[in-house]
């Protein structure tokens, strides 16, 4: 187990709103880490900071010991599934996948399990603008996994997915974890987190309230269900 992503004293504010007030933490490989927290607690900002989509005011993000501020090369090791995936309207699914391969310059060693599982190839001629929210989520998930990255960041991955697809995705998450990857997931669905997560990182008003393993939480609170355990800790 080695620490792959390390965050030190990360601060970010949007105007008057302080989204992150000095977050420090480290993520190890082979774990599924669930980032929880109420709305506007800084989850998405944290994820976007890791991805370089948000430029932090201060603090550092390290990827395998290297600062990532103003670099982009490390992103080839990361697969990202956004909360709401939106793509060029006029593009077709097939073209989108081709383009991503072209941009990443990888045409071999691809992981197409989700593409197959979601049956996306049969829809490859459909334009993105005609797709439902659920199908877009499928596309996003498949894209995130396509390049077999060592880190997967999934923002609300199952929201909008039908139960079957959600199951497929959860299975995929377990598989990836088994391969020794780091998975960073935000979710509001406690049962789901309960099912897949190893560690829970709880953000509250831009600060890490706690970062503990799921088992630890359950044993200290004596609750079997995560939801109850959380209410107990937070109250």
């Amino acid at each position: 187990m080695d620490t792959i992503i390390e965050i030190k004293e990360l601060k970010k504010s949007f105007g008057k709103l302080q989204a992150l007030k000095g977050v420090s933490c480290g993520f190890e490989t082979g774990r599924v880490i669930s980032v929880l927290g109420p709305n506007a607690s800084g989850k998405t900002t944290l994820i976007k900071s890791i991805l370089g989509m948000v430029v932090p005011d201060s603090g550092e993000v390290f990827y395998r010991g290297q600062s990532v501020i103003n670099t982009f090369d490390y992103k080839k090791h990361i697969g990202y599934m956004p909360q709401i995936g939106r793509y060029p309207d006029n593009m077709k699914i097939g073209q989108l996948f081709e383009m991503m391969k072209d941009i990443r310059q990888r045409h071999t060693g691809l992981d197409e399990t989700l593409v197959d599982a979601f049956n996306l190839k049969s829809m490859s001629h459909k334009a993105m603008r005609t797709l439902s929210g659920g199908t877009r989520q499928k596309v996003s998930a498949a894209l995130a996994c396509l390049f077999d990255p060592e880190v997967l960041i999934l923002d609300e991955p199952t929201a909008g997915l039908d139960p079957l697809a959600a199951e497929v995705l959860k299975e995929k998450i377990q598989d990836e974890k088994a391969k020794g990857k780091l998975l960073l997931i935000t979710s509001h669905i406690m049962s789901e987190v309960d099912e897949i997560a190893d560690d829970i990182m709880y953000l509250f008003e831009g600060q890490v309230k706690f970062f503990r393993s799921l088992n630890d939480i359950k044993t200290t609170t004596g609750e079997m269900k995560l939801g109850r355990a959380l209410t107990k800790i937070l109250s």
Binding site: M53, Y74, K76, I103
Partner: peptide, 11 residues
């Protein structure tokens, strides 16, 4: 959104 997607990529 496309730009967002691209920014998350190694470019």
């Amino acid at each position: 959104e496309f730009t967002e997607l691209l920014v998350s990529q190694p470019i």
